[in-house]
Amino acid sequence: MIKQFKQMPVAGNWACSARDSVKRQLLLVVVLFAVMSILKPSLFLTSSNLNAMAYQFPEYGLIALGVMFAMIAGGIDLSLIGIANLTAILMAKLLILWTREEMSGIQNIGIFFICFLLCMMIGAVCGMLNGCLISGLKIPAMLATLGSLQLFSGIGMIITKGKAITGVPEAYVRMGTGKLFGFLPVPLVIYMAAVFACYYIMSRSTFGMRLKLMGTSQKAALFAGQNNKRTTVKAHMAGGILASFSGLIMLARMNSARPDFGSSYTMQSILIVVLGGVDPAGGFGTVRGVVLATLILQCFSSGLNMFPTISPYLKQLAWGLTLLVVMIMNFYSRQRKAE
């Protein structure tokens, strides 16, 4: 029996258009950077500004990488900020509970390390729950993660009783906001490590191929002998782990943890992922594109901060417009190619 194949309006030539959009993005990053530098060289090109940028974007950059996994798998993940906050809260609780003033440095590091591993596991477990809801119970990804977002932040709420947790040991804050070798901010190091790992997984490993093919067609993947449940769960676990890193960075930067922090990150991360050329229907997308889109957003918003007369809320306006314009540009370039 042949059913007429319904072509997704966005699928098809996404692969070649994504390659184009990477080129365009690279150009955009350079142009943005140059324009900002020329307009406000005394502010933009200072080490303190570049420093600030390097501390900011890893937080949502990590979440965007997590969303990328979910979207390439053919779904979406709205719960990652919830996971990030939950891990931040638990990390804060554990650190406050276990560290004592009289402890030595090595003991501190040991405890920190255990907490770190625990938090990563929590991120993975939360991601696993998402994956199970989606592939086991067959709940549409958007709904499942919408629900689990409420669930994760709800658990955070119960733990904190709705208030912020403060008083994280100073050693942790110093470590999280410090610099490796004196010049590489720790959040940036974590981000770069995550980017490298994601790149390896997406472009160099068998899992990346499995994930992209499953995102293209779940049914065809089943008939090709693939274990879709496992692939979906793994993709969401990767997202959960990335989100937990983001939570740990946030905790260090804010010196506190709250269950409703960073609620704008969800929208922002989807924006980044689509800007980065990931196909919203699944199956196509590159780590390169997502990283470049993250940089574009950071350059743009840091640049805007240089102009005190411009309201920071205009960023939102600009992001929305950029997303639409980029999608429309991709649309026309694909159309031209099809002809």
């Binding site: 929208m267 989807i270 924006l271 411009i310 309201s311 920071p312 809320y313 205009l314 960023k315 939102q316 306006l317 600009a318 992001w319 929305g320 417009l321 997303l323 639409l324």
Partner: peptide
């Protein structure tokens, strides 16, 4: 709609 939501928010608070 995510994009238009962001635009509306920008107009509302920014402009």
């Amino acid at each position: 709609t995510l994009a238009t939501c962001s635009i509306c928010q920008g107009i509302l608070f920014g402009i």
